[in-house]
Design a protein around this nucleic acid. Sequence first.
DNA 1: CAAAAGCGATGCAAAAAATGCAGCGCTAAG
DNA 2: CTTAGCGCTGCATTTTTTGCATCGCTTTTG
Lengths: 298, 298
Amino acid sequence: MKHLQTFRYIEAVMRAGSIRKAADDMNITASALNRRIQRFEEEFGSEIFERLPRGVRLNPAGELLVQHFRVQASDLRRVQSQVADLSGERRGHVSVACSQALIPYFLPAQIAAYRREHPGVTFSVNVRDREAAEHDLATFSSDLALVFEPVHLVDFEVLVAVPQVIHVIMQRNHPLAAQPELRLRDCLDHPHVAPTAMFGVRALLDLAAAKGSRPLRPIAESDSFDFMRHYVRHENAIAFQIPIGLQPEPDGDLVIRPLSRRDAPPGSLLMGQMRGRTLPVASARFAQMLAKVLEGYQ
Amino acid sequence: MKHLQTFRYIEAVMRAGSIRKAADDMNITASALNRRIQRFEEEFGSEIFERLPRGVRLNPAGELLVQHFRVQASDLRRVQSQVADLSGERRGHVSVACSQALIPYFLPAQIAAYRREHPGVTFSVNVRDREAAEHDLATFSSDLALVFEPVHLVDFEVLVAVPQVIHVIMQRNHPLAAQPELRLRDCLDHPHVAPTAMFGVRALLDLAAAKGSRPLRPIAESDSFDFMRHYVRHENAIAFQIPIGLQPEPDGDLVIRPLSRRDAPPGSLLMGQMRGRTLPVASARFAQMLAKVLEGYQ
DNA sequence: CAAAAGCGATGCAAAAAATGCAGCGCTAAG
DNA sequence: CTTAGCGCTGCATTTTTTGCATCGCTTTTG
């Protein structure tokens, strides 16, 4: 939309930290960009950048303005989506920010299922830790977020919550593989790998371990659940993950066992949106479908 | 704001019903306006006007779009007002839609009082019947509405409500002037003037009269309370009005008496805004002051 | 039933706005 | 003390927008 061009430039300047860099990013001359901003500031009635010796930075007025424009751009997308919906076939774009766990199995299956019904709808899927996912919602760069154990819930409006018990992954020949349900203390006696502190699974594990007065001593930490899942094949270690991130039928030589609820309470996988926002039709319907699936999930 | 120019043109076309008339109103050529709209429709991805033989009319997509733009323009004004507020002195503009009763005494006094504290704030005051006032809120053309007994309350978010007993206005030498409180049946025995059906005062009077099985028989009906107040001097008739529309100390030869509560229940004078909207700083503060004054009013 | 009036659309030239280029003055980093 | 990077501005150029004249169409009018 052309009438939002100036805003796109303003965002670019904000990101780049200087007009020249932003001009470069946007394939325009610094002078043109500079004048656009000056002209805008004049008609807006106030400066929106403070000029520093090495560039520019948004001032409080600019912060307010950027927030306004983000809301307005998001709302315009919603209107467009609604209009497309009027004319019969559903079109639109759904952007999702989600935890790693959703990436391999759950979301691909759900998106494919949705697109079978509505081929006109496109998707963008971004892996975000729980903090970044909430930020994505707040800046209107994602419509939906799916995260395990979110941190702040201020702007996060929960659409559906699913309890998820932490599961243990190991090779079929692992000593613990025989038990149908595992105790945390037994797991901690064996070599284990664990996610880094930023993840909800780790937070729950640390909490549970602290109660049992036996600390987590991972032989490897990683921010990739994919890495951890593969690692157990090499050292006969154990790894942790929530069920939604696991294949229903694991690969031949891996087994999956739930951790006893006596040790670690189930965490919550939450789907949410920006608080108070009205989602575009496509996103709202997709969220509706996900909610139905998730509610039947456990 | 220049980036809303196209929207202003769209609104003009909507009002005028044809591109040529709108072009005339906006001091631009029809061809330029026509092309602006065509260009906009193209980048928006859908037509927003349906072309009729005698002009154009918004289609459903256009309705959605206009609503979006109205919200967005109102929000931009809010941001500007907030920014002005950042830089010290309060500036801004407050637009009020209100019933006639508020026009002569109450609002002038309140606005003057507010402007004594904040000379940078300007006002627009429009007389609207209770239906039109609500419409003004819904189209974001007024920030606040002050109406007696509003009709629909769907989009009207009540900020404060004040009970108002209907009062009777007559000359000092009127036979009823001696009583401190009047019964409706006595009033109806004398020549009386009444507001037309669109007014809340009339609705309450009709209701009360129906209960007493004696109908209202006004010798004159008017949509101007000013007219009615002056008329009682000429025929020694009586008129009705709510206290907020009356001078505390009436002019020499007029007296004011409350109608007995046994006959007509007090109506409600409501101050409200568009539901869910965040008002500009100036409007919000003015509303706050009004609320305080009104709560102490009766 | 034909003429007139009103409408939206479009080709083309003129006017206006935005952009690119070159260079200024300034500040902080090397 | 030099240099590199920054925002800003005058001027020529390019792009966009506007105005004018006109077409084809439909409804209204005499």
